[in-house]
Amino acid sequence: MGVVSVTWRVGGAALRSVGAERLQRAGAAGERASPPGPRQSPSPGPKPAPAPAPAPLPHSAAPSDRTETSGEAPSCSSDQAAGYPTAPPRVLTAAETERLARSRKLTPSSTSVPPIGLDISTMTTELIPDEDGFYSKAKKYWKNIPPTVDGMLGGYGHISSIDINSSKKFLQRFIGEGSGKASAGCALDCGAGIGRITKRLLLPLFKIVDMVDVTESFLAKAKAHLGEEGSRVGNYYCCGLQDFIPQPQRYDVIWIQWVIGHLTDTHLTQFLKRCQKGLRPNGIICVKDNVSQDGVIEDEVDSSVCRDLSSLRAIVRLAGLHLIAEEKQDNFPDEIYQVYSLALR
């Protein structure tokens, strides 16, 4: 989804110091430091927020060959499923990341996707020293998640209707008849899983929907989950978003929900640039995701990060996009992360 508070590169010692100080303060307040707060099995989407800072769970993006088909799920390379122990979050504050951003001339931190006119090196480089491991670990994690709505929402399947209804109201502001509004022709569901959003949000509003997800078994399950309406799914792409290239000028809406935490800042910036090229006239990109209160927090269990709003807005600007609307999700359980929807163009 602040000025350059994109969480820039810092020395490991400084990072550990900030994390230790935060955990020490939590301990002094009588709070559990490792891991604090309630925690269910790690999962996508909404997730219990530890005290004092939550741990994120957006949905899936990991390496895989890009495959395109029409009407059936393509195959992906397979990895053995594995689970991972919890670990205390590591955090930099927004103020620190802004100071660091202003004081350094930065260079690219990744070669997995060619840089697109922008040299950035972000704090995800420090939180994620092994980028290949970050993506492969997430891919293995998702292979162990059941292909159900409850699995997609980490045990919070009961909030699916609240989520969909809010998303529909948000999205309908930007599509339909009228100047500057997007058409209702074709949408792309990023981190689509089994098609929860495709089925209940996008197919009722658009003629054709494409789906992209890194987990082959989720896309295979989507055919049954979508039922007869699945005939209007144009393409199933089994691919991580860091490698995915949307077809140019195909989409009226690109919907990206609970997945950006599985991308480094560099790859997220580049992916948003590619999404912009995939839009038709008046098309929009919608990002809906967990938002931390302060800085960027790593979850080593599902191999993801959760960004604060300042960092997310900065990435949006670095991608050359304009934030045209921003909305906080209401009526979610108090114990989970705050969730924001951003409309970009």
Rank of each mutant, 00 (worst) to 15 (best):
G151M: 06
M152I: 12
L153W: 10
G154I: 09
Y156T: 07
G157F: 08
G157W: 08
H158C: 09
I162S: 13
S167E: 01
S167F: 00
K168I: 15
F170Y: 13
L171H: 04
L171T: 08
Q172T: 06
F174P: 00
F174W: 14
I175Q: 01
E177F: 07
G180T: 05
K181N: 12
K181F: 11
K181L: 14
A182T: 07
S183V: 04
S183Q: 14
A184R: 14
A184N: 14
G185E: 04
L188D: 06
D189W: 02
C190H: 06
G191E: 08
G191C: 10
A192T: 08
R196P: 02
R196F: 03
I197T: 09
T198L: 01
K199W: 00
R200V: 02
L201T: 03
L201P: 02
L203Q: 04
L203H: 05
P204K: 01
P204V: 01
P204Y: 03
L205H: 01
L205E: 01
F206K: 01
F206V: 00
I208C: 04
V209D: 00
D210P: 02
V212F: 06
V212Y: 03
V212D: 02
V212H: 04
V212I: 12
V212P: 03
V212L: 06
D213P: 02
V214W: 06
T215F: 02
S217V: 11
S217T: 13
H225M: 09
H225P: 04
L226C: 06
G227D: 11
G227V: 09
E228Y: 01
G230S: 08
S231M: 05
S231A: 14
R232D: 07
R232A: 10
V233S: 05
G234F: 02
Y237K: 11
Y237V: 13
Y237I: 13
C238W: 07
C239F: 10
L241G: 04
Q242M: 14
Q242H: 15
F244M: 11
I245V: 14
P246I: 08
Q247H: 14
P248W: 11
Q249V: 14
V253H: 00
W255N: 03
I256H: 02
Q257M: 12
I260C: 10
G261Q: 09
G261S: 10
H262V: 03
H262S: 09
D265K: 13
H267I: 03
T269R: 12
L272M: 14
L272K: 05
R274Y: 12
Q276H: 13
Q276V: 05
Q276W: 05
L279A: 03
L279P: 01
L279G: 00
R280L: 12
I284V: 15
